[in-house]
Amino acid sequence: MSFYFLRRLNLLVFTLFMLAMASFGLAYLFPGDYLTNLTGIHFESEQQRQLYATLYKESDGVFWQFIAYLDLLWQGEWGQSFSSNQPLYQEVTTYLPASIELSAYALFVSLVVGIPLGFLAGLRHNKLADYSILSMSFIGYSIPVFWLALILILILSLQMGWFPISGRISLLYYIPLDTGFILIDIIRSDVSYKWDAFNDALRHLFLPTLSISIVTSTIILRITRRSVIEVMGSEYIKAATARGLNRYQVILRHGIRNTIIPIMPQLALQFTTLLTNAMIVESIFSWPGIGNWLIQAIYQGDYPSIRSGMLAVSSLVVIFTVSIDIVHKIIDPQRLYRQRVKI
């Protein structure tokens, strides 16, 4: 058990180290002065450059430069953006929560919709309900998320006028930035228009969340369905039925737990897919999240932002994956390795 944790922690540290190394290497690979790419400052005088050269240990060779870079990363000195001249650490920590918030709500909606439908389809395997749910799931599973978002905007925003097209909250409402999660910020703030603002933020959230979660809930549905079919065909379910339990007792006592636990890590891992889809959807809805920010940085050739944005997003994904693995191992110690997704 502790060997497993050590292995996972080793993997985590190793991967984060590789990512940091890659982001350091990027400063050399991008065009231009490497020190400018690291700090994000276009040096005006040789003196200014010299100041940063000592900070980043330019004269000491690549290895010590990397150590200095790691040290500065750890202290939150990520350099500054070419386009906004703001410190990158601050930029990333304002934009990242917006993406996490959107993905988290979308994951929640997908789980609430996907798991029950998956159970329904799995329990009625090879019957009409199964076939119709499965056929519907093909549509959600294959639709390109950017096209879906455009159609939703065209119909629900432009034709019907029910939901706002872009942004997180109407400009009428000023919400002080605290945690970066808009709904939590609104609840924690003490403004007079709290509930109007909350309502408005929810309406802004609706379309992005819907377009992301349609795709993800079908994936979750299919994973759940496959697991239900496998569990319901197993020996212990037959034994439970033979003991005289009726169908509902069998499902409640033996079915649900054995179905959910093995697929739990896969369901949680959909968060990473969600985050990618969120990055695309953000740029359609002008959601001020990390995806939108990163894509703008790519357009503008803002190399310090690309470097730190890449580091932040991929570290988040890796840390999330490893912690899901560890949590799963604690809940279900018998399982050795993460199983592959079956859909």
């Binding site: 080793n10 990473t272 985050l275 990618t276 690309i306 991929s314 994904v317 994956t321």
Partner: peptide, 25 residues
């Protein structure tokens, strides 16, 4: 295997966006 396990967790589009960010559009 260690490398692969971590690579598998990152969605393909995210890797693609990062690589495009490095190489340019």
């Amino acid at each position: 295997n260690h490398l692969l396990d971590s690579m598998m967790a990152i969605p393909t589009l995210l890797i693609a966006i990062i690589i495009v960010a490095i190489l340019g559009p």
